[in-house]
């Protein structure tokens, strides 16, 4: 089966970011995660004119990315028991995919926050800083910091009410 560029780009847009987050969980390095995902798609693009048929594109992609990540870990020798990991976890777990999809959404939401709000949000969530500490760091008042974080959370919630209904209450 040969597929068109538009089919390919649909798949790409659909799965690119979740796959990056999925790879990030395994590799813990954003550059490497993105490299693996790009290589996986590049290999897929190369195959477009061969007669290899891929019935379930989504599982194919997750499996390919997982295997490429494991290969990367093995070459880095940071993981002695990669083989074991592979055996134990032969099938991709649905909850891993669901988590990658959720985290991809979170990533996009953070991406879309106004810059100042994002900075403060990251200080709170990434660095685990208290509002008071953030206020000292940025020279803003505690109230302003609180407003920024609340507004960030609010805009996250607005963008995906299902996910966040119970979350930031």
């Amino acid at each position: 089966m040969s597929y068109s560029k538009s089919y390919f780009s649909t798949q790409f847009n659909l799965y690119y970011r979740p796959l990056c987050l999925y790879a990030l969980r395994l590799l813990d390095d954003t550059d490497e995660a993105e490299d693996v995902v790009q290589d996986t798609f590049a290999a897929l693009w190369e195959k477009r004119e061969t007669r290899i048929e891929i019935a379930d594109m989504k599982s194919y992609l997750y499996t390919a990315v997982r295997n490429n990540c494991l290969m990367k870990l093995r070459t880095k020798k940071e993981f002695d028991d990669v083989n074991e990991l592979q055996l134990v976890d032969e099938n991709i777990q649905n909850e891993d995919i669901a988590r990658a999809e959720l985290e991809a959404k979170l990533w996009k939401m953070i991406d879309e926050l106004p810059e100042r709000q994002r900075e403060i949000f990251l200080m709170a969530k990434r660095d685990g800083m208290a509002y008071k500490e953030i206020a000292e760091e940025t020279g803003l008042s505690v109230k302003t910091v609180e407003n920024h974080v609340t507004r960030a959370l609010k805009s996250l919630r607005q963008k995906d009410p299902n996910t966040f209904l119970f979350f930031f209450a």
């Binding site: 780009s9 847009n13 987050l21 990030l24 954003t30 693009w45 988590r99 953070i110």
Partner: peptide
């Protein structure tokens, strides 16, 4: 946990399908 995980790794401009598709096709 997911929020913290994403926040910890977040960098602007990456993991963006729009920027990356051309690179491959």
């Amino acid at each position: 946990k997911s929020v913290r995980f994403v926040a910890r790794h977040y960098k602007p401009g990456i993991f963006n399908s729009e920027n990356s598709l051309e690179k491959i096709t």
